[in-house]
Amino acid sequence: MPHLFYLKECSSTNDEISKFLLYENSDFIGLHTFNQTKGRGQYGNTWSFNAEKNLAYTLAAKIENFTCSDVMFNYYTAIVIRDFLANLTDNDVKIKWPNDIILKNKKIVGILIEKKKINQNNYFIIGAGFNILQEKFEKVSNAGSLLTQTGIEFDLNETTEKLQNYLVEKLQNIPSDEEIMQKFNQHLFRKDQVSVFELDKMRQNGIIKHADEKGELWIDLENDGLQSFYHKEIKLLY
């Protein structure tokens, strides 16, 4: 039985989840807050947060229950969260490689997945920040929320419970690597479209072709031809 815990305020749900794993014996344990003070993003980035407007959510999942690679697990988690939001909003939601979630050209979810050993068990720590009710993003021009992108005020508690149930259900039935790659590329943001990239502090046009099973993104660049990149080696400007 998956558990979902709540904290009125915390620094980071990815950090605080460890305390709950010491006392609960479950394959899936969730933690959420609507007031996260020191959220972390991918590769040391920060995730800014407006109290009582957004959701910080972490799910701890025992690694022993999964046979897929870390890359496939990351991709599949992004797919599940994408599907959840597409169903919730009745919109075409995209995945910006490797695992940001985009709705109508604005980032509404950032995902950070870590691996930790706690109380002799190894876990995937799935952290996700959801912009839900925030209306202004002065410092981040490419960020939005469910409210700004749909005009709908979603209930924070109800959305969190639905998310937990959906994510746990889907993680118990992970499809094949081939299916994961097919669906990830199907919903890949800016795929097969001319986009602007920043590489080595220079800008050039390129077309995203596909992501691969090693976690790389293949881009056909205007000046340099078809190349593959890991995260942070190239930046998509949008």
Rank of each mutant, 00 (worst) to 15 (best):
L4D: 03
K8H: 11
E9W: 07
E9L: 07
E9N: 02
C10M: 05
C10K: 00
C10Q: 10
S12P: 06
N14K: 02
N25Q: 12
N25F: 12
S26R: 05
F28E: 04
G30Q: 09
G30A: 13
F34M: 10
N35H: 14
K38D: 09
G39V: 04
G39Y: 03
Q42E: 15
T46C: 02
N50R: 07
E52Q: 13
N54S: 11
Y57H: 12
Y57V: 13
A61T: 11
A61M: 05
I63L: 14
C68F: 12
C68H: 11
M72R: 00
M72S: 08
N74D: 09
Y75G: 06
T77C: 04
A78Q: 00
I81Y: 05
I81T: 12
D83K: 09
F84G: 01
F84A: 07
A86E: 15
A86D: 12
N87V: 01
N87H: 10
D90F: 10
D90C: 05
D92Y: 11
K94G: 02
K96N: 02
P98A: 06
I101D: 05
L103T: 09
L103A: 02
K104H: 09
N105S: 13
K106C: 09
K107S: 12
K107F: 10
I108P: 00
L112W: 10
I118E: 08
N119R: 11
N121F: 11
N122L: 13
Y123D: 08
F124I: 08
I125M: 08
I126L: 12
I126Q: 00
A128S: 14
L133F: 03
L133Q: 07
K136Q: 15
F137N: 10
V140W: 02
S141H: 11
N142Y: 08
G144M: 00
G144T: 01
G144Q: 02
S145K: 01
L146K: 04
T148Q: 07
Q149Y: 14
G151A: 13
L156F: 04
L156W: 05
N157A: 06
N157C: 07
N157I: 07
E158F: 05
T159C: 12
T159E: 03
T160Y: 03
T160L: 07
K162S: 10
L163F: 12
Q164N: 15
Y166K: 00
E169K: 15
K170F: 09
L171M: 14
D177P: 06
E179R: 06
E179K: 10
I180Q: 01
M181R: 07
M181T: 01
H187K: 06
L188I: 07
L188M: 10
F189V: 08
F189E: 02
R190Q: 06
Q193G: 05
V194Q: 13
S195F: 05
S195L: 11
F197P: 01
F197A: 01
D200F: 11
D200N: 15
M202T: 14
N205T: 06
N205W: 08
N205R: 14
H210D: 10
G215A: 06
L217Y: 02
I219D: 01
E222H: 14
N223P: 04
G225D: 13
L226T: 07
K232W: 13
K232S: 15
K232T: 13
E233G: 06
E233M: 12
I234L: 10
K235N: 10
K235D: 03
L236K: 10
L236Y: 03
Y238R: 08
